[in-house]
Structure formats: C-alpha cells, structure tokens
Nucleic acid binder design. Structure first.
Length: 403
RNA sequence: GUGAGAUUAGCUCAGUUGGUUAGAGCACUGGUUUGUGGUGCCGGGGGUCGCGGGUUCGAAUCCCGUAUCUCACCCCA
C-alpha cells in the first residue's frame, strides 16, 4: 500500500466541510474589506524566496522543497504566500500604475519540517496583502480583518503586537543589541550564539531561562524606535483601543521572515498545542523595491488554515433536500426519473435498493434529509408519492405530477 | 535535524508472566414476512495485530531495523 508522504494530508469529509467553511467565511470578510482574489503559482524561482524571505531564515535555509527542473531552472514549492503576490504585483506593473491594490489568496504552502500537531509539510494559508498605503490605519485594518474572521468563526485568541522599526532605527538598535549580547556571550546558550550571527533580534525570544536573565537589561526595541515609528505605533494602539480590540505588547515578537518592518503582529491560541500562532503579519515597506519594483509600502497577514480547523466549531447542519426510495422493484425506474427532475432545484439522494418504510426513513434521517419520499405499491397504483417532512414530522400523499 | 512515546476491525480502544479459531462499543450490512426515522429485537461480514527481520516448540506480547503519528527542542501559519 502506498501512503501519503510525511506531513502531507488528505482533506475530506468533515475536514473538508470545515475547510470550505473557513474559506467561505474568510473570503466573504476579505471582500467586504475591498480585497480581490489573486492566484499565484505554487512553483516559483528559488531566488524569489531567497531575496524576499531571506537566506538567514530557517524557511529558506533548511525548509524549502527546492529542486532543479528539466529546463535546469532552480525552483521551489512556495514556503509562504507573500513573495509570490509581490512578484505578481511587480510583474503586472501595478507598482508603476500607482494607487491602492488589495489582494487575498489561499492555497497550499510547503515547508520541509518535522511535522507535529498544527505543523505540516504541506499546509494551507489564507493571506491578504495591501499595496500602496503607508498609513498605519491600514495596519489596523489588517488586524481588524483577522479579528473579524476569527470572531465570525467563534475562535478565541490573544493578539500580540510589536514594532520592528524601520531603516532609520532598526539597524542602529541591532548593533546596540549585538554589543550588549556579546558582553555576556560566555553565559548564553549555543542557540543564542548561532542567533547572534544569523538573526540577532531572535535572542530576545530565547526560551532558555538563564539566557533570559542575562537579557533583562538588554536594550528594548520599542524604546529605541525613531519618532516616526514610535508615533505610528502609538497611533496603531489608539486605533485598536478605539475599536475595542484587545492586544498585548510583546517586545520580543520577531517575525521569522526578513522582510517585515514596523508593525508586526501575531494571533495566538492556547488551545492547539505548542504551535500556538494561528495568524501572523505585519508591514513590509521595503519588499517591493527589494524585488526590483518601484518603492511601494505594503502590509499583510496570513492565517494557518489547518491550525484554525482545530478550533472551528461548525454551525449545526440543518436538514436539507430530499431522499427518495422505492418499496417495490417496479418503482425504482420511477424513482431515478423523479430524482433527476428534483435535482434541478434541490439536493436529492436516492436509494436504488427496495426497502421497507422503516429502512428508508432511517436512511433519510441518517443523511440529514428534510424530506423522505417513498413510492410503494399503493402509490404506483394511484400515481402518487408519499412524503414525510422529517423535521416537522408531518406527512402527505400527493400526485406524482405535483412532486 | 535531535530526543521521547505510540501504532490491534472503518472509528475509539481492551488483550493477564509469550500459549488454542485476537475481543468490545460505535459504524456497516441482512432479517424482523409492504408501511413510520433520529432511541426496538435477532443475526452477519470485516483484522497476515503499521511494515521487514530476529529469538522461541510457539510472538499482538520479547529484541533489532524501518515508516507514520504524537509530544518536546528548533522554528513558524
């Protein structure tokens, strides 16, 4: 027997119900916010991700499904969605067109990681990207949209917020931090030694207690923002306050992708195990020009669909459609004909086997049909059909032509 | 990539110190003699016990390898 690859799941039955329920809910909300659907390829040039996500990140460094195709191109399955959307935005020359462009997407992403709950090698994200607005109001709008989606699905969350600064304040802060950490280098863990080289900000996020003790007096990002970033962050907090969106400031929140600046946020849940982030996003004002486009401010987020599916409680499914069955062999031909006509307007399920009434009622109940319609010898003789409303428990016999 | 635990019927799980044809509930299916479901009664099918080796007279049970899942590290959605 051939099984699916590690970390790659089939989605069917109840999982698929929840999956589409999420997509439909999120799509509806994104459209209400004025966003348009965009589909980009699953396969892209490897260079796209190296330049956008960053070579120092784990995603690019060790988690990409990368290979050389038959035309000798270095390609990989997308590990995240933003880079492809930005590439499309530039390729379609929308950066030069100016104005505001808002997109949402959903689809499979691929990361070669060790799977566990809420972490798969092929997983799905729903994401949103907004181009052309540098106002922090758009950042707030992103957060409101995620919040609306989660609320619509009945999912509780905690929102963590940080500012990563911009080109004016981040580099200087990073140097300060590196200097500070170097001074206590003898006491830090080997992971932090590595982080110092690859992604220094991440040391603040270290879960090692002894490291954290050393970092207590380390310079804090939020206290070293330039006036612009600092004002924007204050404005963002005020907008969220005004709109009753609760948040926590987490000065150690560092997004794993290199392209983020200023606003960074993460929605987390306590109910899905150690992979607690259900949505994450932020501003990436430099990415468009970094990928050879005209400088364009941008902000976006992505939601991890499989992680959310752990939390989604489906609304009670209502009785719907018809079940049609025959109690005599001679009625089967009639039943399939009736079903064919009925399907023009209603969901209709039929059973090709003749059964007694009790079996038909049980079968109709099981598939959650609203009506159970049955033809037996009496009905054949009279040219009628017997129908029971399974919800109201009412029944009637009508002429076949009225069915 | 590192470490730990798990894997028995479609699903959730029992299975005693290694000992006959490996069990239960749910699900599926047939009957209950053609007429009332979601909560009746009686019956039935379905497992090379994840896979491959080894120890043994004998392995679901012990040992080794391997795959997958789960948890932790790492990282992230």
């Amino acid at each position: 027997m051939i099984n699916s690859l590690r970390g790659m799941n089939d989605i069917l039955s109840e999982d698929y119900e929840r999956f589409t329920y999420f997509i439909n809910t999120a799509t509806e909300i994104a459209q209400k916010y004025g966003f348009h659907f965009i589909e980009t390829p699953l396969l892209e040039e490897t260079a796209l991700f190296k330049r956008s996500v960053g070579e120092s990140s784990d995603i690019v460094g060790k988690e990409m499904y990368q290979f050389i195709d038959k035309g000798e191109n270095d390609v990989c399955l997308r590990p995240e969605g933003t880079a492809g959307v930005v590439r499309a935005f530039i390729q379609k020359k929308l950066d030069k067109a100016g104005g505001i462009h808002r997109y949402f997407y959903h689809g499979a992403m691929f990361r070669y990681e060790r799977p566990q709950k809420g972490r798969l090698r092929q997983f799905h994200q729903f994401g949103v990207e907004s181009f052309g607005i540098d106002s922090v109001y758009e950042d707030a709008t992103m957060i409101m949209m995620v919040s609306d989606i989660l609320k619509a699905l009945g999912i509780g969350y905690r929102l963590q917020l940080n500012s990563l600064g911009d080109i004016n304040c981040m580099p200087a802060y990073k140097e300060n931090l590196i200097d500070y950490v170097r001074k206590c280098k003898d006491g830090i863990c080997i992971d932090c030694v590595r982080r110092l080289e690859t992604n220094p900000i991440r040391v603040l996020d270290c879960k090692n207690g002894s490291c954290q003790e050393l970092y207590v007096d380390a310079p804090k990002l939020l206290q070293n923002l330039c006036p612009t970033c600092s004002n924007d962050f204050d404005t963002l907090k005020k907008i969220l306050d005004d709109n009753s969106i609760d948040y926590e400031i987490d000065t150690n929140l560092v997004r794993g992708l290199d392209y983020y600046s200023k606003t960074a946020f993460e929605f987390i849940s306590n109910d899905i195990g150690s992979q607690s982030a259900i949505a994450g996003g932020g501003r990436y004002d430099k990415l468009v020009e970094f990928l050879d486009g005209r400088p364009t401010p941008a902000v976006g987020f992505a939601i991890g669909i499989e992680r959310l599916m752990e939390l989604i409680v489906m609304p009670e499914s209502l009785r719907n459609g018809y079940y049609i069955g025959a109690m005599d062999d001679e009625a089967v031909d009639l039943v399939i004909k009736l079903a064919h006509a009925k399907r023009k307007t209603d969901k209709t399920t039929i059973d090709y086997k003749t059964k007694n009434l009790q079996k038909h009622l049980k079968a109709a109940d099981k598939i959650n049909a609203k009506y159970c319609a049955v033809i037996g010898s009496n009905e054949i003789k009279d040219g009628t059909i017997w129908i029971k409303n399974l919800k109201e428990k009412t029944e009637k016999i009508i002429e076949l032509k009225e069915f």
